[in-house]
Design a protein around this nucleic acid. Structure first.
Length: 255
DNA sequence: ATGGTCGGGAACCGA
């Protein structure tokens, strides 16, 4: 069972690239971020054999889960702030797995209200993650975390030191969540290699390999026990009209 | 060199 996360940066603009990747990579469950629409083409994906759960808003944010097996919706909002209307969270049960699809706030500029919102969101996420661990169900937290965990995960740490993706408070909040008992799949698979999941559109970042690792899959112990492989589909970034993120995936053996 | 380039959606904001 292959579970992937892919920030597509707009479903309207990315439809062809996404469909090509789905055909080539054949994931079983896909968590999408930044669909950037209040009208996700769920019917088209259902016609292609996918089960679809999505939450969107016009122009910004938005998340979706595509699954080859039936999806049972668990949640469309991250608990802890009833006033938060941003479409950044989905949870579903799929084929015995509990999957959360998240689009964590970017947080720039920092300091400021956007960074405060990011940290508050991470505190809410920490609480939900703790509850999911306590349930002892195989669980995957998949998404664009907008956190670069260490300086080994950024090509130009000095240039990014004051960025909300790299600031100590964001890194510490991420570390604290992982430390509760999650396995960070890509870093477990590549303990020492330099691997990125995002390259900015600006300044020729892709050509210079000025990347960041900000898309993560966190596995609960029961899910981590089943991990046989993980990877980053880096070549996706080289296509015309590519997203600035690439798909990241984990392979889990059958239960 | 405080820039650069995308997506969404129709002037700028967000990333």
């Amino acid at each position: 069972m292959r579970v992937a996360t892919f920030n597509i940066n707009g479903i309207a603009a990315r439809r062809q690239r996404l469909d090509e990747w789905l055909e080539a990579a054949r994931p079983d469950i896909v968590c999408l971020q930044e669909i950037k629409t209040a009208a996700f083409p769920a019917e088209a994906y259902e016609a292609a054999g996918w089960h679809v759960l999505w939450a969107g808003e016009k122009g910004f944010n938005g998340v979706a889960i595509l699954a080859r097996h039936p999806l049972e919706e668990v949640a469309r909002e991250l608990p802890g702030d009833a006033g938060d209307r941003q479409a950044r969270w989905l949870e579903a049960k799929v084929a015995g797995l509990h999957v959360a699809c998240l689009y964590l706030p970017n947080g720039n500029p920092a300091p400021g209200p956007r960074f405060d919102y990011k940290l508050a969101f991470m505190q809410r996420l920490a609480g939900r993650a703790r509850a999911l661990l306590a349930a002892e169900i195989p669980t995957v937290l998949a998404g664009d975390w907008n956190v670069c965990p260490t300086d080994a995960d950024v090509a130009r740490p000095e240039a990014m030191a004051a960025d909300a993706l790299c600031l100590p408070q964001a890194r510490e909040a991420f570390r604290a969540i992982v430390a509760e008992g999650w396995t960070e799949a890509v870093r477990a698979r590549f303990p020492h290699e330099t691997v990125y999941t995002y390259w900015d559109y600006q300044a020729g970042a892709w050509a210079k390999n000025w990347g960041l690792r900000i898309d993560h899959l966190l596995l609960s112990p029961a899910a981590a026990d089943r991990m046989t492989d993980a990877g980053i589909d880096r070549d996706v970034r080289a296509a015309e009209r590519a997203s600035d993120h690439v798909p990241v995936w984990v392979e889990l053996s059958s239960a």
